[in-house]
Amino acid sequence: MLVAAGCTPQSVTEEGRAVYGLYNLFLYIAAVVFVVVSGLVIWSVIRYRRRDDELPKQTHGNNRLELTWTLIPTVIVLVLFVFTMQAQNKVLDQSGDADVNITATAFQWSWRFAYEGTGAEVVGSPESIPEMVVPVGQTIRVKLLSADVVHSFYVPQTLFKRQAIPGTENLFDLTFEKTGLFHGQCTQFCGLQHPDMVFRVRVVSQGEYQSWLAAETRRGAAGQPGT
C-alpha cells in the first residue's frame, strides 16, 4: 500500500490538491492499521501454534478490551469524516465567480465543449479526440450535460469526476495550476465504443487562450465547429 502512495497522481488543479492531501492522510492511517492488524494475526499464528494436546484456557471474551476496539475505530472514522468534509468543501466550492464558463455535453461516443457567450465550440468523435482548451490559473466552471445515456467526465490529474446524466445539469469548478496537455476519458460505461470516448484538456497561458478563443469564435461564426 505504501507503493500506492507514489502512484497517486499529483493534482494539477487547486481543487484536486485538497483531495491529494486527504488521500495521503487516509493512506498513512490505513498503513498503520494494516500493519498493526496483520502483524497481530501473524504473531498469533506463530506464537500460539499447537504444540501439545493440552486445551488452552477457554476464555469467552473481555468486555473492556472489546469496548476499546469498538471505540478506537469509531474515533478514527470520525476524525476521517471531519477531514473529509473539509476537503469536500474545497472541492465543491462554487462561491466565487467563474472566469470561463464551458458547457460540456457528453454523447455516444465523444464530447462537445461550448464556450458560453463566445460561440466557440469544439466537437469530437470516436475517431477525432476533442480538446478542451482552458487558461491556467482561472476558475473554469463546467456545466455538464448528457445527450443520451449516463456518461462520466474524468480527467485523472484533476482527481475529480462527475457523471453526465440526461435531464440534469451538473456544475463544478476546475482551477488549473499548471499548463500542459492532460488525458481525459468517460468512466461510466456507455455502450459499444465507451473506451473511445477520450478527450484532452489543454491548459495554456492567458494570452494563448485569448487568441485560441478568438480563432475558434471566428470559425464558429463561419459555421465550422472545430475538433
Binding site: 497481530l40 494475526v41 500460539y48 499447537r50 486445551l55 471474551g61 472489546e66 469498538t70 472514522v77 469524516f81
Partner: peptide, 23 residues
C-alpha cells in the same frame, strides 16, 4: 465510514480467539 466499526470488532474478535490458543 461507520461500517468499519462493526467490521473492525469482528476482525479483533478473531484475533482475540486465536490469542493464547492452540492453532
Amino acid at each position: 465510514l461507520l461500517i468499519a466499526v462493526p467490521t473492525g470488532i469482528k476482525v479483533f474478535n478473531w484475533i482475540g480467539t486465536m490469542w493464547r490458543g492452540s492453532i
